[in-house]
Amino acid sequence: MSAAVDAPPRRAAWRVPRKALPQLAALLAILLLDRAVSPQFFHVGLSGGRLFGSLIDVLNHGAPVAMLSLGMVLVIATGGIDLSVGAVMAISGALAASLADSHPLPVTLGAALAVGLVCGVWNGLLVAWLRIQPIVATLILMVAGRGVAQLITEGRIRTFSSHGLAWFGGGSVLGVPAAVVVTAAATVLTLALVRGTALGLMVEATGGNARASRLAGIDTRAMTVAVYAWSGLCAAVAGILAAADILGADANNAGLYLELDAILAVVIGGTSLLGGRFSIGLAVVGALIIQAMNTGILLSGLPAEFNLVVKALVVLAVLLAQSPRLKALGLRRPGARATGATP
C-alpha cells in the first residue's frame, strides 16, 4: 500500500520526457536527415548582426505556424477546431500593412491584434452560444475572411516602409530573429496563461467530458470563447509576422493553407483531435518538425514535384511512431526495463 502511494512522484517525473520522446526523436531524426542532404545545415554564423544559418531559417519560418499552433492546440483540446486562422492571418497582416505608414506602430499593432481577437470571439460565440459545429463555424470566416483581407488591400500586395513593423521581419534581439523572439515569448506567455492558472485543467476537462465539466461547475461556454479568442489573437500575431517578413501584405497568399499545417503540428504534438489532454510545447515542436522538413526539402534540391509526397511520407512516419498500437509493441520492452530498474 505505502509503496503504491510513494510511487507516483517518481512516475510523474518519468512521464514528461517519455511522452515527448516520439516528437523529439522525430525532430532530431529530421534535423539529422537535413544535415545529410546539406552538410552546412548546423552551421550558424552572423550576418548583419543577425544569426544566420539553416537552423535559424527553420526557427524563423516555423514561427508563423508555431504561433498558430499555440492557439490551435487549446481549441483542439476543447474538442474543437479552428479553420479560420489562415484567413485571420491575412486580415491582420493586411490591416497592419495598410496602417503602418500612416499610423504609429502601437496603433498599427493594436488594430491588427484587435481584429484577430474580434475574429476569434466571433468564432467562439458561434461555437459556444449558437452551438454550430466548430468545423462549420470557423469555415465561415475561413472563406469570408480572405475576402475581407482582399478588400483591405484592394486585391494587390500592400507594401509598407515602416521600420517599426519591418522589425518583426528583419529585426533581431541579440542576434535572434524577431519572429523567433516573438514566438518564443508567446509560447512562454501561453504556457503561463494555461499552466499558471487553472485554464489548462479546465480546458482538458472540458475537452475530455464537457457535460461532466459543466456539472462540476466549470463555465464551459466562457472557456470555449476564450480559447477561440486566443487562437484569433495568435493568428493575428502570425499575420503580423508574415506581413513583416515580406514587407507587405499579400491577401491572396498570406496564411494560405497554414490552418492545416497548424492542425498537423498539434496532432504531431500528440494532442487528440477528440480533445482532452494537450501539450503546448509539443505542438510547437510539431511546428518545428514541419518546418525542418520543408527547409530540408528545399535544401535537398529534390525536384519540386516530389515535395508533397516526401512531406506526406515523413508525416506518416511521425504519426505512425505515435500510434498507440505500434507504441504498445515498441514500448513494451523499455517499459519493462523502467520497472526493472526501480529498486
Binding site: A198, G208, S213, L215, G276, R277
Partner: peptide
C-alpha cells in the same frame, strides 16, 4: 457521461469542482 473525465487523473478529477 456526466461524472468522471476519464482521461484525467484521479487527483485532477477530485480537485475539479473545488478549482471551478
Amino acid at each position: 457521461t456526466e461524472g468522471i473525465v476519464a482521461e484525467l487523473t484521479v487527483r485532477e478529477n477530485i480537485v475539479l469542482a473545488l478549482q471551478a
